[in-house]
Simulated assay, not measured.
Amino acid sequence: MLSEKSTATVRATLPAVGAAVGDIAELFYTKLFAAHPELIRDLFNRGNQNAGLQKQALAGSIAAFATHLVGHPDTRPDVMLSRIAHKHASLGVTRDQYAVVHQHLFEAIAEILGEAVTPEVAQAWDEVYWLMAGALIAVEERLYAEQQVAAGDVWREWTVTGRVEETADCTTFRLTPADGAPAPAHRPGQYVSVQVELPDGARQIRQYSLSTSPGSPVRAITVKRVHGPAAEGPDGEVSHHLHARVHAGDTLRVSAPYGDLVLEDSGAPVLLASAGIGCTPMLSMLEHLADTGRTAPVTVLHADRSPADHPLRGDHRALTHKLADASARFWYEEAAEPGDGRGRMDLSAVPVAPDTRAYLCGPLPFMRAVREQLIAKGVPARDIHYEVFGPDLWLASA
């Protein structure tokens, strides 16, 4: 809960801070990486840093959190906090790192806003920061406890037992713990972090959804190779490394599974909508539904460039056919086959059962468009859940 005094101060200064939050984030990361170069080398995604995506995400989360506290001082934006905490846990972030962030963030705030940062203003925004940090720390430590690991100690060596070239740019890596111990349990839709050592010595980390169900004897990730800077993201240096250098018999450093986009254990109808490599968490959910004999309606939707670019397309269809009441429809920009949609995903002719729980994964514009169509069909916003690969820019671009 934000104190009354700080609420008034934050409300009064929020327009100025909000207008400058992008510059603050830029200077913060400059200061942070100058003091701790190991963080950009071994923890932060330097591709996202170079493209400015992480700065946008930080700015968006700070602005959203402060705005929420001012408007609802007795509550917290738990959905946003949960998503951030799961990502932090998959990276092994620990409590002491929040003090480091605090130091450089508040130096950046003071430098950007200058004399506007009076002691009263500094104290109010300090309270905002530690409310957010404290909430994240609490969730992250709970997540570590659930995985039965010490805070930050999320890494294990896994052996690649096989690889399958799904498409020209998507490869599935089958994994098993190198120590022979059981794989940690995961929920359908969760992801793991994978850390690789690149030729320049950097140990970069990326998140990849587990594309198999919790009941499967196999753990697998399907990785799309990213070709150079693009509108949806920066260079894929880790994906290129995995495609070019990692083969059966090699080992990878893999985190415990995390992620808050998980399939609810209920009897409600389910809709799974994805685009591109966003199908991977949907496949885990779909396989789980098939394994558990779900009888409620299941609607499977996917959009891609072409059938040849659709990763795990055969699994998408085969798993759908295993369910008692399920249908699948795909949309392709090119080479659509009879029965497939052409162009972008259009839900106008797709029936949506009452009380449907919808799960979305793909590029942000795709998810926004599908969410709007679902809401127009009567699906409440609370029943539409999403996952973003990379920094979550949903709030930053709202």
Rank of each mutant, 00 (worst) to 15 (best):
M1H: 09
M1D: 14
S6K: 00
V10C: 07
R11N: 08
P15Q: 12
A19W: 00
A20N: 12
A20P: 10
G22T: 15
A34E: 15
P37E: 08
R41Q: 12
D42A: 06
N45T: 05
G47N: 13
G47R: 03
G52W: 12
K55N: 08
A57M: 12
T67H: 01
T67W: 02
V70W: 08
P73A: 04
D78N: 06
V79H: 12
H86Y: 02
H88T: 05
A89F: 06
A89K: 10
Y98V: 04
Y98P: 00
V101F: 03
Q103A: 13
F106R: 10
T118H: 05
V121F: 06
A122W: 10
E127W: 07
I137V: 15
E140N: 08
E141Q: 15
E141R: 12
A151K: 03
G152R: 02
C170W: 01
T172G: 02
L175M: 09
D179R: 09
Y191I: 03
V192C: 11
S193D: 13
E197Y: 01
L198M: 14
P199T: 06
Y208C: 12
T212A: 07
P214Q: 11
P214N: 04
R219S: 12
I221H: 06
T222I: 12
V226H: 14
E232H: 12
P234N: 09
D235Y: 10
G236C: 08
V238K: 07
H240I: 10
H241R: 02
H243Y: 04
H243P: 07
A244G: 03
V246G: 07
H247A: 15
H247V: 13
A248V: 04
A248L: 00
T251M: 00
S255G: 13
S255E: 09
L263M: 10
L263Y: 10
L263E: 05
L263Q: 07
S266M: 11
G267L: 08
L272Q: 02
S274L: 06
I277D: 01
G278K: 05
C279D: 03
C279Y: 05
M285A: 11
H288W: 14
R294Q: 10
T295E: 15
T299K: 07
R305D: 12
S306G: 13
P307I: 11
A308M: 11
H310G: 05
L312G: 05
D315K: 13
H316Y: 15
H316M: 14
L319T: 12
T320Y: 05
K322S: 04
K322M: 13
K322P: 00
K322T: 05
D325E: 13
D325L: 09
S327Q: 14
R329L: 11
E334Q: 15
A335K: 08
A336Q: 07
M345Q: 13
D346G: 11
L347K: 04
A349T: 13
P351V: 00
V352W: 09
V352P: 02
A353N: 11
P354D: 12
T356D: 03
C361N: 14
L364H: 01
P365M: 04
F366H: 02
F366G: 01
E372D: 14
I375N: 03
K377H: 13
A381V: 08
R382P: 04
R382N: 09
D383F: 02
I384K: 01
H385M: 06
F389P: 03
F389I: 02
W394P: 01
W394C: 02
A396C: 06
